[in-house]
Structure formats: structure tokens, C-alpha cells
């Protein structure tokens, strides 16, 4: 298990770190010298316009893509290492669990792959916490999109990860379930990076922002700081929009 040790200067090592990372799909650049770091325990939103490179960034952080150049690390380890995989929970946008398995089978199977201790109780807890108990034997291919999303969230946190990477986690959820999930995510320890387009969600789930555009960093800081960049009554969305279009 990788520990995040203090650096020589005494400041904690970053939990998530990208250093001069570039990634292209063929001739199309997705990320260009992207660098940012998130400290342990940090709650960050990853913001950016469509095509900014948010999903690519998350895929690099889970190790399913490798950078063309630069360095990516999770708790000091490469993302594709066992050490990093053990500590990361990931929820992609439009997540798809195994559709031939039931809800409980999905949780138990992935819990087994992750060697989760006391798996039965953990699965029971998640089924109850996310109101999935009545669907535990249901074929996932037959679930509604909302219940599929709840299961996907449960799968992302089944192993109580120290680092949680979430891509639009509240998609498809009704408002009561959104509140339940927000409360659950708030109660989790660890470092969170949430990719979203919706500022109100970013404001509920995180306290800081990494804003990227065209594969490079645009701005990084606290949400309160972001709010202060506009006029007192200006909605934060307008401030973000102005930043993304280069008006600030």
C-alpha cells in the first residue's frame, strides 16, 4: 500500500499529480503539457468546455490510457500499478456495469476482484444506502438508467477508495437520490476529483476547481476565489463561461 510521505520541504506529496502531460488521438491533440496536482483530502472539480480533455485526463488517471509524454501519478505510484489501482475508485460518464449479472452479482464480483474484506456486509450496506435492495436480483440490462447509475456509484466505492474519480456522478438521478448520493460522497474520506459541467454540483461536491481548456490548464483555485472574480450578484456559471471563452 502506497503511503503519501511528506516531501523534503515538509509539504505533503500530492495525491494526484499530472506533470507536463500530453496526449493525442492520432493527429488530434487532447492534452498539451497539462500540469496540476491535488493534495490528499482535496475535493476538486474538473471543469472545462466540451472537448477540453476532461475525460482523457480521468482515463489517464486510471491508467487505461498512457500519456505520450509527461508523468502521471496517484499517491506516488503510476496509475496502472497495483498500488494505485487498489486505492482508486472510478465512475465514468454513462457507466455500464456488467449487463448479464444481477445488481448484487456485479457488486460481489467487483468486490472479489478488488479483494474487499467482509464483502457481504459491504454489499448489503451499499444496497441499502443507495436504495438498490429491491433490485439486487435484477438483471442489470433491465434496470432504469437511474438505478444503473446508482449501481455504478456503488461499484466505484465498493472498496472504500482513497482516491475517487467521478465523471458526472449525478447524471440520471432524481433529486432525492441526488441528495442521498451527495450526502454519501461528502461522508467519504479521501481525495475526490469530480468532472462536471454543472456548477451547482461542483459547488456541492467540491470546494476547489481545476479548469482546463484545449488540453491545458486554465485556472486552479478555490470555488470561493472563483466567485470573487465576478461581480457580487453574478452567477458563478457566468464567471466560468467568461473564463472558458477567454473573457477573463
Amino acid at each position: 500500500m502506497t503511503q503519501s510521505l511528506p516531501s523534503a520541504s515538509g509539504t505533503p506529496n500530492p495525491c494526484i499529480e499530472l506533470s507536463n502531460v500530453s496526449k493525442s488521438y492520432g493527429l488530434v491533440p487532447a492534452l498539451s503539457n497539462l500540469s496540476f496536482a491535488i493534495p490528499e483530502g482535496g475535493r476538486y472539480a474538473l471543469l472545462g468546455p466540451n472537448g477540453a480533455g476532461k475525460s482523457t485526463t480521468l482515463k489517464l488517471l486510471i491508467g487505461s490510457l498512457r500519456p505520450d509524454s509527461g508523468r502521471v501519478s496517484i499517491l506516488g505510484s503510476p496509475p496502472d500499478s497495483r498500488a494505485a489501482k487498489a486505492e482508486v475508485g472510478y465512475l465514468p460518464e454513462d457507466a455500464l456495469p456488467y449487463r448479464m449479472l444481477s445488481v448484487r452479482e456485479n457488486l460481489e464480483y467487483i468486490g472479489s476482484l478488488r479483494a474487499v474484506g467482509d464483502l457481504k456486509n459491504r454489499v448489503d450496506y451499499l444496497l441499502d444506502a443507495l436504495d438498490l435492495r429491491e433490485y439486487e436480483r435484477s438483471n442489470v440490462g433491465r434496470l432504469s438508467r437511474g438505478n444503473t447509475q446508482k449501481l455504478a456509484i456503488a461499484l466505484a466505492i465498493v472498496h472504500s477508495p482513497k482516491v475517487l474519480l467521478l465523471d458526472e456522478p449525478l447524471n440520471y438521478l432524481d433529486i432525492p437520490t441526488q441528495e442521498k448520493v451527495i450526502a454519501m460522497l461528502e461522508s467519504l474520506q479521501g481525495t475526490h476529483l469530480v468532472s462536471t459541467h454543472i456548477m451547482s454540483i461542483a459547488g456541492r461536491l467540491t470546494d476547489s476547481v481545476v479548469m482546463i481548456s484545449k488540453g491545458t490548464i486554465l485556472w486552479k483555485g478555490a470555488i470561493d476565489e472563483l466567485k470573487r472574480m465576478g461581480s457580487p450578484d453574478e452567477p458563478i456559471e457566468k464567471i466560468v463561461a467568461r473564463m472558458m471563452t477567454g473573457a477573463i
Binding site: E105, Y109, G111, S112, L113, A115, L119, S138, N139, G141
Partner: peptide, 27 residues
């Protein structure tokens, strides 16, 4: 065709107590 499968798994498997590798084989 895809939706011809039933909505509920009648005899679900349990993976509790399985190691990562044995879970793959069991499934």
C-alpha cells in the same frame, strides 16, 4: 433479441469469499 433475457436472475451466484482470480473463473 437483447431484451429477451428475463428481468430477474433466478439463481444468482455469490462471489463472497472468492479470490480475484477464482471470481473470474467462477463467473
Amino acid at each position: 433479441m437483447v431484451r429477451s433475457s428475463s428481468s430477474e436472475i433466478k439463481a444468482p451466484n455469490s462471489y463472497v469469499g472468492k479470490s480475484p482470480v477464482s471470481a473470474i473463473y467462477f463467473m
